[in-house]
Design a protein around this nucleic acid. Structure first.
Length: 271
DNA sequence: ACTGGCTCCTGAGGGC
DNA sequence: TGCCCTCAGGAGCCAG
């Protein structure tokens, strides 16, 4: 599933092929996503030059002359650059065709993704306006985290997943960051010490940076006509490894239901 | 102000 | 081999 590192890898992969190009047309094959794709999107984008592509949390912001396309990949979304005459696949929802014969296609079987359009500041869009700091920015500090956590009884894992606290950290990386920080997912956020907040911020940034770097080696895959997007398998310490030995101490990894989602931790390494 | 639960959806994976 | 069942998960939304 596209987590923040995959979205960032996607951004870096497609940006050089989009920026400076003009959209000749845009075809919507299946408007059913989390919210319907705006019916006028094709008409709106026609003839627009792409000026930039940024990321905020897991949202991609494609800037054109008259506004921004806001794209979220949801659970199963992917973006590929293909020749315009390449065969269309099931669950290809839309394609943005460029002046060089390439098309940017959105594929999303589960349809948790979204494609929206705004002519205002995209950062002020209702979906983005209340996001917390980017985890890799200098705004995400131990002091900030400690301040936000004060008095909160919420489990640390859920705290990290809350995009109002910190933007774009998904379940995999929340679990991995907690492992690296030596903190149990179920521990109350408000019980963090200053040193632990420091460890958690540092671990979150480390695991995200490593994943983005791992994705960097596969950027060219975004321009490949077949196969899956060039995502990557980071070595995961705890996520998806229930009952398997901890890579550090050999203790069996525990799986715990925390709310609706699974949390994984090493009962020895994490306290 | 917080928190937890529900919901959307399809493909993968397990059990038999 | 094939069928059926369960489950996964981002994040907005709502109720308590």
């Amino acid at each position: 599933m596209p987590e923040l590192p995959e979205v960032e890898t996607t951004r870096r992969g497609i940006a050089p092929h989009l920026i400076g190009h003009t959209i000749t047309h845009c075809r919507v094959h299946d408007a059913r996503l989390r919210w319907p794709v705006p019916p006028q999107l094709g008409k709106t984008l026609s003839g627009q030059k792409i000026l930039g592509i940024e990321r905020r949390a897991k949202y991609l912001l494609v800037q054109t002359q008259s506004g921004h396309v806001i794209i979220h990949l949801g659970m199963s979304g992917s973006l590929r650059l293909l020749p315009q005459d390449a065969a269309r696949k099931k669950h290809d929802h839309l394609e943005i065709c460029l002046d060089d014969g390439l098309a940017l296609r959105l594929h999303d079987p589960r349809r948790f993704g979204a494609v929206l359009w705004t002519e205002d500041d995209p950062l002020q869009h209702a979906l983005l306006a209340h996001l917390g700091p980017e985890p890799l920015s200098s705004d995400f500090t131990p002091e900030y985290l400690l301040h936000k956590a004060r008095g909160r009884k919420r489990a640390l894992r859920d705290f990290l997943l809350d995009s109002r606290i910190v933007a774009g950290v998904g379940n995999i990386y929340a679990n991995e960051a907690l492992f690296l920080a030596g903190l149990r997912p179920g521990r109350a956020a408000g019980r963090l010490s200053a040193a632990q907040a420091e460890a958690l911020v540092s671990a979150t940034q480390r695991v995200l940076r490593q994943a983005i770097e791992a994705g960097g080696t596969t950027l060219r895959d975004f321009l490949r006509a077949d196969g899956k997007p060039g995502y990557f398998q980071l070595t995961l310490n705890v996520y998806g490894r229930p009952k398997q030995p901890c890579l550090i101490c050999g203790t069996h990894i525990k799986l715990k239901r925390l709310g609706q989602r699974s949390a994984f931790y090493c009962p020895q390494c994490q306290r």
